[in-house]
């Protein structure tokens, strides 16, 4: 990929697009790489991904239909640095940016995955805040507060995602992928 991007946003749902639109307005050149299904319409039938994407692209943002599958990190002093990311369809080509934003959503969108005993974040293996096994993640009473609805990626005070306890210095996590406990 030959274009240079200031910020690469992983996930073009509500949170990803919100970030992209704000940054474009601020003069940044953004790339959104998006694959999954946004959960926003379930909670807000008025919201239209098509319209929001249009606004982003009108501001000069670039949209790519693809799935980010992994990244390459480097150790630094106060944390890690994300160097570049690979996608499903880009083969050996990778994407570079100064800043990255993870906005891949929660379980519904595939930003978080679960097997009977683990919950994890599939792109970078970031730290996920959860407890116990599957029986602990839900309550038998449907209308009770459900623990799993608050699970998600751990972030520090600056919103930077944590991995093995250390912040990824140029990777922010936003939206429902982030823990709300």
């Amino acid at each position: 990929m030959s274009m240079n991007f200031d910020t690469l946003i992983i996930g073009g749902g509500h949170s990803g697009l919100q970030q992209g639109i704000a940054l474009q307005r601020n003069g940044q050149q953004c790339l959104i790489i998006s694959a999954g299904e946004s959960s926003r319409p379930l909670r807000d039938p008025e919201w239209s991904q098509a319209i929001e994407r249009h606004r982003f692209e009108d501001l000069g943002g670039v949209w790519l239909d693809d799935r980010v599958i992994k990244g390459v990190l480097k150790s630094a002093n106060e944390g890690d640095l994300l160097l570049h990311v690979f996608t499903e369809n880009s083969g050996e080509k990778f994407f570079v940016a100064d800043q990255f934003i993870l906005a891949t959503g929660s379980f519904y969108s595939g930003g978080l995955l679960a097997d009977p005993v683990h919950i994890w974040e599939p792109v970078f293996g970031l730290d996920v805040d959860y407890e116990g096994k599957h029986a602990d993640w839900v309550r038998p009473d449907f209308f009770a507060q459900q623990p799993f609805m608050t699970f998600g990626v751990r972030v520090d005070a600056q919103g930077r995602a944590l991995r093995q306890g250390r912040p990824v210095l140029n990777l922010q996590a936003v939206g429902s992928v982030v823990a709300s406990r």
Binding site: L42, S106, F107, Y108, H134, R139, F142, F148, M149
Partner: peptide, 20 residues
Amino acid sequence: YPVAWGEAMREAQLAQWMYN
């Protein structure tokens, strides 16, 4: 509720968003 992992987690979250 007793199979809260994998695909069922998606359904569980969908149900919670729509009805709770």
